[in-house]
Amino acid sequence: MIIKTDLIIVFDLDDTLYKEIDFLKSAFKDIADFLSKKTNKTAKLILAEMILAYQEKKNVFETVIFKNNIQGVVVNDLIKRYRNHKPNIYLTDSNKMLLDNIKQSVYKTGLITDGRCIQQQHKIEALGLNDYFDDIVISEAFGSEKPNINNFKYFVEKYGSHYKYVYVGDNTSKDFEAPNKLGWTSICLLDNGVNIHPQSFNTLPYKKPTFKIRSLTEIRDLLF
């Protein structure tokens, strides 16, 4: 068992601590409510049109504006609403219990997330994550995004290299390269079929995670 003062564990946010598709659906609902006031269609019907366009890999906002002949609204207006809305997303009970356990069991906890500050902060607030993490690195504020090694070195430079570091993420294209180079243990949460970004393990060895898990609860068995 790794004692508390030995371990610093850092998480990714999107598609790791919650499913990013839930943020997308929340944003689409907010936009559908907004657009329904400018058409004779219900928000429910507009939402269905948006989800269908997304599934068909179309430009969702362009499609819904054109299909409903909406005047006075452009794609950038909807992009802003998407990014800035306050999402209706939540942690699962099992993930809450895990984070509670980890917070009590390890020396420090961290979060590294790529994205715009407002959008990512709204997610963090909606999920109630501020109480779980000692340090939160958001790429826009930090000045670089994964796989830039500096986003990870931040923790080593702050706390020292004598601790054991673990990183938990999901994106095989950018999540594991930097922590692997730093000698961290890297853990990949496998896609359950709804991830925004597809996973591929047909990649160079230094980009592959140390471990793969199907549920975050498996972290307990790996580390404690």
Rank of each mutant, 00 (worst) to 15 (best):
F34E: 13
L35M: 06
S36C: 14
K38L: 15
T39M: 05
K41Y: 09
K41P: 05
T42P: 05
T42E: 07
A43F: 01
K44F: 09
L45T: 13
I46W: 07
A48V: 13
I51K: 07
L52A: 15
Y54M: 14
Q55F: 13
E56T: 11
K57N: 12
K57V: 12
F61P: 07
E62T: 13
E62V: 11
T63C: 10
V64H: 08
I65W: 06
I65G: 06
N68K: 06
N68H: 13
N69C: 05
I70K: 02
I70H: 02
I70E: 02
G72K: 10
V74G: 10
V75Y: 03
V75P: 07
N76R: 08
D77Q: 10
L78E: 08
I79M: 14
K80I: 14
R83M: 13
R83F: 11
N84Y: 07
I89E: 01
Y90V: 12
L91I: 05
L91A: 04
T92C: 04
T92E: 09
T92F: 06
N95Y: 07
N95K: 08
N95T: 12
K96P: 04
M97A: 10
D100V: 10
Q104M: 08
Y107T: 05
K108Q: 07
L111A: 02
I112D: 02
T113M: 04
D114Y: 07
G115M: 05
C117D: 15
Q119F: 14
Q119T: 15
Q120L: 07
H122K: 05
K123S: 03
I124R: 05
L129M: 07
N130M: 08
D131H: 04
D131E: 06
F133E: 03
F133V: 10
I136Y: 05
V137C: 02
V137I: 15
S139I: 00
S139E: 01
A141L: 13
A141R: 08
F142E: 06
F142M: 12
G143T: 05
E145A: 04
E145S: 05
N148E: 01
I149Y: 00
I149G: 00
N150S: 08
N151H: 00
N151A: 02
F152V: 00
Y154I: 01
E157I: 03
K158S: 07
Y159N: 09
G160N: 11
S161M: 09
Y163D: 02
